[in-house]
Design a protein around this nucleic acid. Structure first.
Lengths: 105, 105
DNA sequence: CGGCTTGGTAAGTAGTAGCTTACGGTAAGT
DNA sequence: ACTTACCGTAAGCTACTACTTACCAAGCCG
C-alpha cells in the first residue's frame, strides 16, 4: 500500500542506505548494526522503522534479538519505478529526435 | 562524479519527483512546470537546481527560456545501483536458504 | 532604447528529520 | 526470582529543507 515514494525517501538518508546495503549482504540484528555505525542503537532502531514502513526490510524475532532482512518485494517495486521512467524518457527522446528530423527536411 | 546518493535524495521530495516525472514525458521550460504546480516559480527553479546537481536533468537555453530534460546517463546510474542490490540481496537470500537446508539434514 | 517576458539568486521563516539520553518491556541464564 | 542482554519508544534539541517575497540579469519585440 505504501508507495515507492516512501522507499526513495527512506533511501535518501546516507545512514539508512548504509544499513540497507549491509542488510543486502547479510541479515543482521539491531545491535550488530549499531556496533559498526557512528550512531546510537536507538537511532538505528528509528532508521529500521522507516525502512520497514517503506517495505524495504522485514524483521523476525529470534530470542531477544530482532533480525532484519531486506524485503525483495519492496526492492522490486523501486526497481520497476525506475524501469518505467527509463523507458518513458527514452521514448520522449526518440520522439523529439524524429520530430526534429522531419522539421529539418 | 556526484554519486547516486544525491540522485536518491533529489527524488525523495514529492514535488521534485513530480517535476522529474513530467520531464520524463516531455522536456519543459521552468514557467510551464510552475504553472501546473502549487508552488511558486522560484521554488521550481530551486528544485531544478537540485535535480541538475544530481545529474538527473540537463538544461539548454532557448531564447529567454530554459528547457529542462532528463539526463539519461544519471538515470541509468540510479538504475544500476538498484540492479546491484537486487542481485546482492537475492544471493544473500539464496545463501541463507541453502545454509538452512544443509542444517536441516 | 524602453517595456515585457523569462528565470536564477538572496534573505528570511516554518516545519521536519535525525540525533541524543532516559525509560520500559520482554526473553534467556543463573 | 534476580540479573543480564537486547530492543522499541518518548521527549527534547539542533540542523537542514522547502517555501515565500523581493530583487536582478538577459534575451526579445514594439
Amino acid at each position: 500500500m505504501t508507495n515507492h515514494g516512501d522507499a526513495l525517501a527512506a533511501l535518501a538518508d546516507p545512514t539508512r542506505r548504509a544499513i540497507f546495503e549491509r542488510l543486502a549482504k547479510e541479515p543482521s540484528a539491531v545491535g550488530e548494526l549499531a556496533r559498526d555505525l557512528p550512531i546510537s542503537r536507538p537511532a538505528v532502531s528509528q532508521h529500521l522503522k522507516v525502512l520497514k514502513e517503506a517495505r524495504l526490510v522485514t524483521d523476525r524475532a529470534e530470542g531477544t534479538r530482532r533480525i532484519y532482512t531486506v524485503d525483495q518485494a519492496g526492492l522490486a517495486a523501486v526497481r520497476h519505478y525506475f524501469e518505467q521512467f527509463w523507458r518513458q524518457s527514452l521514448d520522449a527522446f526518440r520522439d523529439a529526435a524524429s520530430k526534429q528530423h522531419t522539421e529539418e527536411q
